[in-house]
Design a protein around this nucleic acid. Structure first.
Lengths: 153, 153
DNA sequence: CGCATATCAGTAGGACTGAAATCA
DNA sequence: CTGATTTCAGTCGTACTGATATGC
């Protein structure tokens, strides 16, 4: 928790879109990190468990592409999740380069806990906005993200 | 530059507001960091120089409150900016605990360079949106940030 | 061979903490 | 004494790079 009472910021900064995004993302990340840390989790755990739950057993490389998490960070996070019993890693007999990662029942229960925690966090984050403002914000962010994660040409 | 072709993400993730914010902020930060690094600058430089230009000579503590930058990071960044000749630090005769930081003419010129660089970056970032969508996004983010940086009660 | 996968070691900037020294 | 300011020495999670080993 940071939270020093802020002063009045320079106009150049308060109207700079990239900075607004960073500052609001920082607020969101503080809420998410604190909330997840309270139950012993991190953002990467949620991203990986929810991807495994939706798409089924996957290689680590595929998980990296779907979540945007670096291959290198997948490795260490997978070790954590496996250690906690939330996933299993087996060598894929069809392609022995791959680790086939599978979510366990314990992992599914864990995902449920994380879902509930994150729901509460989203509410806290978006509390200042009306329902239709929240929808608009989400659509605008999705549009921005979609265009910027496409191959640019 | 990261840029691995992304896969299809889990629905839980693509609709999670905190994650959308983080992902778009990440895009913005990559653009900003790369653009500023190309001319030897960092985000903190812009935040501090623009605050000094708008509010005049300030203590480091005041700069920290206005920019949201931690007191500890102000110290090291100020050393960089002073080393480059963009600011001067004098002991405030009126309160000898304080460093009175003042932007130099060279610092003002530098701020102009950073302004131009950042203008181009904002255009690239917001290119997928229409003008009125950009305005709406900015308003929504400002509202969120304002409410979350107020004393909560 | 080229290419993908998994792993490890390490880097970099950003956010933050705790403690010390100084002074209002 | 309390409280503000500056500074230093770290920690932490995130994003990322480079190299290596292995297998398709």
């Amino acid at each position: 928790m940071a939270l020093v009472k802020p002063g009045i910021a320079a106009k150049r900064l308060t109207s700079l879109p990239s900075r607004l995004l960073t500052q609001v993302a920082l607020v969101a990340n503080r809420l998410v990190n604190d909330g997840l840390a309270a139950i012993g989790a991190r953002r990467y755990h949620y991203a990986l468990l929810s991807t495994l739950a939706e798409f089924g057993p996957s290689s680590q490389a595929s998980l990296g592409r779907r979540t945007g998490i670096d291959r290198s960070d997948i490795v260490s996070t997978m070790a954590e999740l496996e250690g906690a019993g939330y996933v299993t890693r087996l060598n894929d007999p069809a392609d022995r380069r791959r680790n086939l990662v599978t979510i366990t029942n314990k992992g599914r229960k864990r995902l449920g806990e994380l879902d509930r925690e994150l729901d509460a966090i989203q509410d806290a984050l978006l509390a200042p906005l009306t329902i239709s403002q929240r929808e608009r914000l989400i659509l605008l962010l999705q549009k921005l993200y979609a265009r910027h994660s496409e191959p640019v040409e």
